[in-house]
Simulated scan of single mutants.
Amino acid sequence: MTDSTKYLQALEEFILLGKSAPGAAAVANIQKCISSPNCFVFAELLELPNVQALVNDAEHKKWVEALKLFAYGSYMDYKQQKSAASDSLPDLTDLQLTKLKQLSLITIASTEPHRLTYPSLQSLLDIPTTRLLEDLIISAVYASLLDAKLDTANQRVEVSSTAGRDVAPGDISNMIAALEGWSASCSSVLTEIEAQIASIQASAVAQRKEQLAYEKLVEEKRKTAEKDGSKGKRVMDHSDNTGFGLGEDEMDLDDGPFDDQGGARKSRKGGNKMFSRKR
């Protein structure tokens, strides 16, 4: 069960009573609701006809204003309005004031996070001691109103998330404008991302084409080199170590055409040619 569902279930009994409780009974129902330790949303109760009818009653309309503060106001608003006109709001009990301060922590964390220091919170919420402030914050954490840690060394409250509160009628247009601005920003970012992706893909295709063209050129050069190399081979038969071939009719002579006695030397192949020496 989510926190929002839990809060709505806690409110359900007060909605059922509010539908059939006019006048003073409606006021009593509001008082019980804002005192309940488990109820932290109030918009549906505020919208009931019996509650809205209290606006026309001078004696009871201040409880409608009090319910509005619990729905989307704060303890700071309560102090300001009471200071401006003491009879504009009822005097709240200590239990009701504590609950309003718990809800105010959500508002401060959401709208003015820079004020989440011990001195600032003590001043805003009229809390005299650090111990009482820490007790209030811990109670809000246990009620699932805040996800927070106390930094006692630096006298700060580190809030990572908060529960949602009821939306005031005048805030709806602001929320719509904020959501439209966020949507436009997201669309702009998506357009930029798509353009970058298209550019990267085009670059990859171009690089691939260049790589294929290069590989094709290398392959053509290799084939041409192999073809030219086979044509340039030199085949030599019956060659000696010098590379000059000797025919079958060529003679292999020793030092000269004469022997030691001056006679003619025969060829090693048995030829009959003779050489004579003049005397």
Rank of each mutant, 00 (worst) to 15 (best):
residue 8 L to R: 15
residue 12 E to L: 14
residue 14 F to D: 04
residue 18 G to M: 02
residue 19 K to Q: 12
residue 20 S to W: 02
residue 24 A to G: 00
residue 25 A to P: 05
residue 26 A to E: 07
residue 27 V to S: 01
residue 41 V to G: 03
residue 43 A to S: 14
residue 48 L to W: 01
residue 50 N to M: 10
residue 53 A to R: 11
residue 59 E to S: 15
residue 67 L to Y: 08
residue 67 L to D: 11
residue 75 Y to S: 02
residue 89 L to W: 00
residue 90 P to V: 03
residue 94 D to F: 04
residue 106 I to G: 08
residue 109 A to R: 06
residue 110 S to W: 01
residue 110 S to G: 10
residue 113 P to E: 07
residue 114 H to S: 07
residue 116 L to W: 00
residue 116 L to C: 08
residue 118 Y to P: 00
residue 124 L to C: 06
residue 127 I to A: 03
residue 128 P to H: 10
residue 132 L to I: 03
residue 133 L to C: 08
residue 136 L to G: 11
residue 142 Y to S: 13
residue 143 A to N: 08
residue 147 D to V: 11
residue 152 T to Q: 10
residue 153 A to F: 03
residue 156 R to T: 03
residue 172 I to Y: 00
residue 174 N to H: 10
residue 187 S to T: 10
residue 189 V to W: 02
residue 190 L to Y: 09
residue 192 E to C: 04
residue 194 E to M: 09
residue 203 S to V: 01
residue 206 A to M: 07
residue 215 E to A: 02
residue 217 L to P: 06
residue 221 K to I: 05
residue 222 R to Q: 15
residue 227 K to G: 06
residue 228 D to Q: 13
residue 239 S to C: 08
residue 239 S to E: 05
residue 250 E to D: 10
residue 251 M to R: 14
residue 256 G to M: 00
residue 260 D to M: 11
residue 262 G to M: 02
residue 269 K to C: 05
residue 279 R to L: 12
